[in-house]
Design a protein around this nucleic acid. Structure first.
Lengths: 208, 208
DNA sequence: CGAATGCTTGACGGTACTCAAAGATTGTGG
DNA sequence: CCACAATCTTTGAGTACCGTCAAGCATTCG
């Protein structure tokens, strides 16, 4: 299955959302308040599961939207139970992926709650850079980064205007270069220090 | 196993943390930045798992501290795999609990990122009130609430002083009463509207 | 009864928000 | 292929929410 950039994969409130694995492309999970304020919870990259929470509860508590054109592999909801029964090692991987996603959300919560805007932007760039690297989707020190400043704002709980000013200020430090849809890392060490973010490179992830 | 109020259950960075279920009492998960800023990720109530993330990765990415005296049931880490292999329904429950915990963190991220201080305090009180109710730990419209204002501040990404002023302002609205360690709900409907938080009461949770 | 912890309040400052408008870029259809 | 729309980026002026600092009060505990 393929969803075009900007398309809705799961709508907040869907009663019976499907279950997917990301094969290629980017997406993000988000929640909205009734007056339109939006918070991006995390970004989804190849290998991540989508819609698992909806399979466990009565409905989706969050929306999922494609950031780029994205290829998904649909899994039948009814197959989950068979998987737990017949393939414990796969069931374990599902739990691993769920726990891993939570650890990302944890870090984002720390960022939004306690990091300054400057530290937050640094942390987000570093996190995505590392994730792309561990997926071997980096070309040297360059990775795709298909985010608009509005996405960054909604991920960090900031306003668009402030993200722009903060990004600008960060770039003047020369730790990285950001041309539209690519991020080129120049001084990752310094950026990590600024962000106070030193997550170890991830173990190779299980693939479902 | 019992840990006294204020005691450390898991230290951030522990290499080989144990695995527990909460039998009674409160705890919380948190992360800290190197200069001491702290973010509480979520609160743990009876039935919740502790330390599962640490079992999946190389070390704990967050700390866990007892809020009250707390009774824990320790599970051997080595037993996890056996559980997945021999008791798929229990394995499924583990995943359910993990996904449920993530949905709480998701909501907290929305709060910290996009709700105002007033909305955030309202949301936190409502969330804990509902959780206690679904655990049948409420006495009518009263529940224990063993949080200090510093805990609320660290959960919402606010300063202690501002939490105090905000709480005070909220109480003047008369939607609830807060005496030290108890919360008495007076107008839950209005508080939900204020918080824009309408999570349905939880299904009875699986117990591990 | 003193120490420690937690709560309350005020003055002041700053980070980040709102509002507004003008470029820049991209995409699209005539 | 150009023109127009839509989206995204950039910038500034003014504001406000929330943070910091500081001090006094209340409560609990040993």
């Amino acid at each position: 299955m393929v969803v075009p950039a900007g398309g809705t994969i799961i709508a907040q409130g869907d009663i019976n959302p499907k279950l997917y694995t990301v094969l290629s492309g980017w997406a993000f999970r988000f929640k909205m308040l009734s007056d339109g304020r939006r918070q991006i919870l995390n970004f989804l990259l190849p290998g991540d599961l989508i819609g698992f929470q909806g399979a466990m509860f009565d409905g989706a508590h969050h929306g999922v939207e494609a950031l780029t054109d994205i290829e998904l592999c649909a899994l039948a909801r009814s197959k989950i139970w068979e998987l737990y029964k017949g393939h414990p090692e796969l069931a374990f991987d599902v739990t691993w992926l769920t726990a891993h996603e939570e650890s990302i959300v944890d870090e984002n919560l720390l960022t939004v709650g306690r990091r300054t805007a400057l530290e937050g932007v640094a942390m987000l760039l570093m996190q995505l850079y590392k994730r792309m690297q561990s997926l071997e989707l980096a070309e040297g020190n360059r990775v795709d980064l298909p985010l608009s400043q509005l996405h960054i704002a909604d991920a960090l709980g900031l306003s668009l205007a402030h993200v722009n000013k903060t990004l600008r200020r960060l770039q003047r430090l020369g730790l990285f270069r950001l041309d539209g849809r690519h991020l080129e890392m120049i001084n990752g060490r310094a950026l990590q220090n600024l962000a106070d973010y030193f997550e170890a490179p991830l173990a190779p992830r299980p693939l479902i």
